[in-house]
Design a protein around this nucleic acid. Structure first.
Lengths: 297, 297
DNA sequence: TATTGGTCATGCAAAAAAGTATAGCCGCGG
DNA sequence: CCGCGGCTATACTTTTTTGCATGACCAATA
C-alpha cells in the first residue's frame, strides 16, 4: 500500500460531502472551485473509486463516498482536537475547551458552574456541545463530557459526581384541575409527558415503572427542555431532574419515595488532556461543582 | 479559529516524532529533509508552540509535541482505515482486512479459520494485529477485533461467539516429578506459571482464585504463548484456554470442576464496515468459525 | 423566451511548494 | 587529530499546485 495520498484530499472530500458541491466546498475551505475539483479527481484516481457522479446541479456522492465520510469526519475531529490542544499548551489556562453534555445539563447546570471559572481565567473559551446522543470522546469531538453512562474506555479519565435524581412532577395548576394521583396505577388516567424515541436507558427505566412506556404518553418529546416547559405549562405529569426544580416554580413532586431514579453521573476527559492546563481546570471545576450539588439558575 | 492548518503538516509531525530526526522522517515519507523541516517550522508557527528543540544529533520533542502525538497517530490510523476501506469497495471481496486479536488467538485459532477463506476469496489480504492490549476499534486501528471484553461502543457491530474457557493445566512429566495436587490449596507448594503485569481481568480472576496472584508465581510472563511453552516444557502449573490443548500434547487438566473460567468472546466490527463486502465476509467467517468450536491446529 | 444564479470544466499565468546542492556542526573511531 | 557519517539550515532552481478568467450547461423565473 503506497501510503502517499495527501491528507489534504480527505479534507476536500469531507467539505464536498458536507456542502454538496465543489463550489460550495471551495468557499468553505477558502479555496477555489477548480482546486477542489482537482482534489476530488486526484482522490478518485488514488483510491480507484468514483466518488461523485458529476452533474451541473451539484455532485451526487456515490456509495463509496458515503462510506468514506465517517472516516473523513473522524480526521476532521482529530485535527480540530489537535489544534484545540495546541492552542493552550502553555502555562496559562487559555484557549478553547469543548464540553459535551445533555441539552438540559448544558442549559441549566453548567452555566452557573462555568461562569465564575471564566472570571478566574478570562482567556478560557468554552464550547458547549449539547445533545442527548452520547458524544464520542474517543473521536475527540469534545474534550470533556458530562455523562450519565459509565465511562467505557480506559483511556478516559473519569470522576464520578453526585447522582442526578429523576423525579416525577406536575404543576400545581394541573393537579388542581385533574386531581392528584394517589397510586402509581392511577397515573394511567393522566396526561403523561414522556420520551419519543426509545433508548437503552429508557428501556431499563420502563422495566422498573411499567407505565413509563411510549404508548402511554399524551405528550412525547426527546427534548428535555420541551418536557420541562410542558410541565411548567401544566400540560401533564412528567419526569425531571430534582435538582432542576426551583422552589416557587409551582412544580410538585409526586411519589417521591416510589419514583426516584438515580442517574449515576460522571465527568469524563481524555487522559491525554491532563497535561492541558485549561482542560484540567475545567474538569476540576465541573467535578467540584457537580459534587457540591448545584442549584438551578 | 482559522482552521487552515494543512493536514499534511500533522503527518510530517508524526513522522518526525516516530523517526527522531528530520532526515529520517523525510526518508520515511519519501520527501526531502528541507521539506520536512519547513513543515515543522510551519506547524510551529501555526500552532504558536515550539515543537522541537533543534540539535545536530536530531530533534528533541518538547512536551507540546509529545502531547500532540496521540492526535497525530489517530489521524494516521484514520487515514489508513479510509484507504483500506476504499481499497475494496467494489462488488468483490478483495483488499486488506485488519484483524485485532490476542496473540494466542491470532496464532492458534485464527489461521485455520481464515486459511479456507482465502481460498474462496483469493484477493483478500489479511493483516493480523496481535497484542493483548485491547485495540481501539473506534480509532480504526483495526477493522475487526476478537475480544474478551464486552463491546462498549454502540457504533460497533458485535456478535457473541462461544466462550473461551480457561483451565488449569500441567504437563504429565511435571506431575510425575512433583506430584498431582489434590486440593486447590495444595497449589501453593507448586511452581505456578502466571502473568507479570496486572490487568482488570486478572484482578477479577484473582478474587475467585485467591492463589492466583503475582506474588505466588514462580514463572511470570504476559505472553500467553510463552506461558504455554512453559507448560509444555513441564515448568509448572498454569492456565490455558481449553480449546488450545490438543489431545496427546501431554497436558493434563487439573481441577476441571473447580477451576474453569469462561471468557465471553465477541467478534466486533465497525457498523460502517457492513457495507464493505470483504470485511463482512471475514466477520461472518470468524463468527461462524468461532461458534463451531475450533480445534487447535 | 431571455435572464439570472447556480453549477462544472479548461487554458494559462502566478504563486507556493517541492527538490538540489552546499555549508556548518557535532560525535565517534581509527 | 583528522576523516567519516549523522544531523540541520540556507540559497537557488525546478516542479507542482493554485488561482484567475472564461465558457458551457442547467433550472427556475419573469
Amino acid at each position: 500500500m503506497t501510503n502517499t495520498i495527501p491528507w489534504e484530499l480527505y479534507r476536500s472530500l469531507l467539505a464536498v460531502l458536507q456542502e454538496g458541491s465543489l463550489s460550495a466546498a471551495a468557499r468553505a475551505l477558502d479555496l477555489t472551485q477548480p482546486t477542489v475539483g482537482r482534489h476530488i479527481s486526484a482522490l478518485e484516481a488514488a483510491l480507484g473509486q468514483t466518488l461523485f457522479t458529476r452533474s451541473q446541479a451539484g455532485l451526487l456522492p456515490t456509495d463509496a463516498a458515503l462510506a468514506l465520510r465517517p472516516h473523513a469526519e473522524a480526521m476532521h475531529s482529530t485535527a480540530a482536537a489537535l489544534e484545540r490542544m495546541a492552542h493552550g499548551l502553555g502555562s496559562e489556562a487559555r484557549g478553547p475547551v469543548r464540553i459535551s453534555a445533555s441539552e438540559i445539563v448544558g442549559v441549566e447546570v453548567l452555566p452557573p458552574l462555568l461562569a465564575p471559572l471564566r472570571d478566574r481565567y478570562p482567556h478560557l473559551e468554552i464550547e458547549l456541545l449539547l445533545s442527548n446522543r452520547v458524544q464520542d470522546l474517543v473521536l475527540r469531538e469534545a474534550d470533556i463530557a458530562v455523562r450519565m453512562t459509565p465511562p467505557q474506555q480506559d483511556v478516559l479519565l473519569a470522576a464520578r459526581v453526585d447522582d442526578a435524581v429523576i423525579g416525577l412532577y406536575a404543576h400545581e395548576r394541573y393537579l388542581q384541575q385533574h386531581g392528584t394521583p394517589t397510586t402509581l396505577e392511577a397515573l394511567a388516567g393522566h396526561a403523561l409527558i414522556g420520551f419519543d424515541t426509545e433508548t437503552p436507558f429508557l428501556r431499563s427505566a420502563a422495566q422498573r415503572f411499567s407505565l413509563w412506556q411510549r404508548a402511554n404518553f399524551a405528550w412525547r418529546s426527546d427534548n428535555d427542555l420541551a418536557q420541562r416547559a410542558l410541565l411548567r405549562a401544566g400540560a401533564g405529569i412528567g419526569v425531571c431532574q430534582t435538582r432542576l426544580v426551583q422552589p416557587g416554580s409551582g412544580l410538585v413532586r409526586l411519589f417521591a419515595q416510589e419514583f426516584a431514579l438515580p442517574l449515576p453521573t460522571w465527568v469524563v476527559m481524555h487522559a491525554d488532556l491532563r497535561s492541558s492546563l485549561r482542560c484540567k481546570v475545567v474538569f476540576d471545576a465541573l467535578v467540584q461543582g457537580l459534587r457540591a450539588g448545584p442549584a438551578v439558575g
